[in-house]
């Protein structure tokens, strides 16, 4: 009995530490004054202010643009990579998967700094104007850390598939591409979409890599907020964080729901 209450208390404490700050932030985003400790009444004024702040809206736009484009590009690259790795022999497959894991395990700061150095090298030394820090470099960086997630969510789908199905399609008169489109794609589609959503949330979530690889006119929300906390802490940020949290939460729910549905289908 005693053990039971102890473990329960522990669990409650964990959840408090995890979620209390978020709940507090959400509550105070509706506070009518700047105060972070005293509740002075309900108001939507910070939300209104948020949407009138052109700097924030611009950053939001950059964030969404880069997240959506990076997700789409990494869906293509990750799927192609998964198809390629899948058709390799087991030994080379293991080697490549290990390489694939590096960007995910690598600390963000190292990835950010190395990418920045590479872009500067390409821009300054090789005189390639394309690599001037800005939206395009930000996008390249995001694609770099997004692609492994797509690859890892497509690969299990390929493993579930009987590879003879591809041969069966060829046997029935399909070209290489037709077999891929009509037989392989429909069966790995859910993996690609899940990977894309995951990639999108990763992009939204990122601050460190974006901080090093974005230019002055392509700041993401994360970078902007990080900068703001140094000079003025505006309650607008509470409102912004609340919205971002809800957006990510919804995406996660979608992913989980999809997986739940898929596993239920498999059981049937």
């Amino acid at each position: 009995m005693k053990k039971h209450t102890l473990s329960r208390t522990y669990m409650i404490l964990v959840f408090i530490f995890m979620y209390a700050p978020i709940v507090l932030l959400m509550i105070f985003s509706f506070n009518s004054t700047k105060s972070r400790s005293v509740w002075t009444g309900f108001s939507l004024k910070w939300y209104a202010k948020l949407f009138n702040d052109s700097e924030i809206i611009n950053a939001l736009q950059v964030t969404l643009e880069v997240a959506v484009s990076a997700a789409l590009i990494s869906m293509i690259l990750g799927t192609a990579a998964a198809l390629g790795i899948f058709s390799l022999r087991p030994r080379s497959r293991k080697g490549l998967l290990w390489l694939n894991n590096i960007p995910m395990m690598n600390p963000d700061i190292i990835m950010g700094v190395t990418l920045m150095l590479m872009f500067i090298f390409l821009y300054r030394i090789c005189h390639l104007p394309f690599f001037a820090l800005g939206f395009q470099t930000l996008l390249i960086a995001h694609v770099t850390f997004d692609t492994p997630y797509v690859l890892l969510s497509v690969l299990p789908k390929l493993r579930q598939m009987d590879i003879r199905q591809y041969e069966a399609a060829r046997d029935l008169g399909a070209s290489n591409f037709q077999a891929l489109r009509k037989v392989v794609m429909p069966q790995i589609k859910s993996g690609i979409v899940t990977g894309g959503i995951l990639a999108f949330t990763m992009s939204i979530d990122d601050v460190v890599v974006s901080y090093f690889t974005s230019g002055p006119f392509s700041e993401t929300l994360g970078v902007l907020i990080f900068g703001m906390t140094k000079k003025r802490i505006s309650p607008e940020i509470n409102a912004l964080c609340t919205l971002m949290f809800i957006a990510v939460l919804v995406l996660l729910l979608i992913i989980n729901f999809r997986e739940f549905k898929a596993s239920k289908e498999r059981e049937e």
């Binding site: 003879r164 199905q165 041969e167 069966a168 399609a169 046997d171 029935l172 037989v183």
Partner: peptide, 10 residues
């Protein structure tokens, strides 16, 4: 045309 070992139906 081939009938595969484990059928390989789509």
């Amino acid at each position: 045309n081939t009938v595969f070992q484990k059928y390989a139906l789509f």
